[in-house]
C-alpha cells in the first residue's frame, strides 16, 4: 500500500505555477467576449499573485518560495563559462530563467492591478496594452525555460542514434 505524504514546498510551487498558467490562459481567452468569466479568471490571477508575494515575504531568501532573483554569482559563472567557449553552460540553469520569472511576476502584477482599476475607471486601454505585452513576456519565458531541456533531449537522441549506428559500421 502506498503511503500518502505531504507535498514538498517545491511541489506546492509547481501546483501554484500550474494554477497561474491556467488562470492566465482563461483570462486571455475570455478577454474579448466573456467579461464575467474574464473577471473570474483575472481575480484568480490576482489572488494567486497575492499568495505568491505573501509567501515570498514570509520565506525571505529561502528557496523555493523566495522571489526568483538571479544572483550576481550566477551571472559571473555563466559569463565566465561562455567567455571560455563552454557553450554547455546553456544546457544548465541559466540566470535568464529566474530573471524571466521575475519579469513575469512584475508584469502580471501591473496587468491585474490595471484590470482591477478598469472595473472602476476608464483604464481599459492601459489594461489591454499591458495584457497584450504580457503575452510576449510569457512566450519569452517559455522559450527560455524550454530551451535547455529540449537541447538536452536533442543531444541525447543524437547520441543514441550514433551509438546504434556504430556497430553496423564497425
Amino acid at each position: 500500500m502506498t503511503k500518502l505524504r505531504l507535498p514538498k514546498a517545491f511541489e506546492l510551487l509547481l501546483v501554484w505555477h500550474g494554477l497561474l498558467v491556467g488562470s492566465y490562459t482563461i483570462a486571455y481567452l475570455t478577454a474579448e467576449g466573456a467579461p464575467v468569466l474574464h473577471q473570474f479568471a483575472g481575480y484568480s490571477v490576482l489572488g494567486l499573485l497575492a499568495v505568491r508575494l505573501t509567501a515570498a515575504l514570509i520565506a525571505g531568501v529561502r528557496p523555493p518560495w523566495a522571489l526568483p532573483l538571479p544572483k550576481a554569482s550566477m551571472w559571473k559563472n555563466f559569463g565566465r563559462k561562455l567567455a571560455a567557449g563552454h557553450f554547455s553552460a546553456l544546457l544548465g540553469r541559466t540566470p535568464f530563467a529566474p530573471l524571466s520569472g521575475l519579469v513575469i511576476l512584475g508584469t502580471l502584477v501591473l496587468v491585474t492591478l490595471s484590470g482591477l482599476a478598469a472595473d472602476w475607471w476608464e483604464w481599459e486601454d492601459l489594461h489591454e496594452g499591458l495584457a497584450e505585452s504580457s503575452l510576449a513576456v510569457v512566450l519569452i519565458h517559455i522559450a527560455i525555460v524550454s530551451f535547455a531541456p529540449l537541447l538536452k533531449r536533442l543531444n541525447a537522441s543524437r547520441a543514441d542514434a550514433a551509438a546504434t549506428a556504430l556497430p553496423r559500421n564497425a
Binding site: 501546483v15 500550474g18 494554477l19 498558467v21 491556467g22 488562470s23 482563461i26 464575467v36 468569466l37 473570474f40
Partner: peptide, 22 residues
C-alpha cells in the same frame, strides 16, 4: 502540472459561468 492547472481553471471558470453568468 501546467496542463492540469489549465484544465482545473477551465473547469472552475466553466462551472462559474454556468451557474452565475450566461
Amino acid at each position: 502540472l501546467v496542463l492540469v492547472g489549465v484544465l482545473f481553471m477551465g473547469i472552475a471558470t466553466l462551472t462559474y459561468g454556468t451557474f452565475y453568468d450566461k
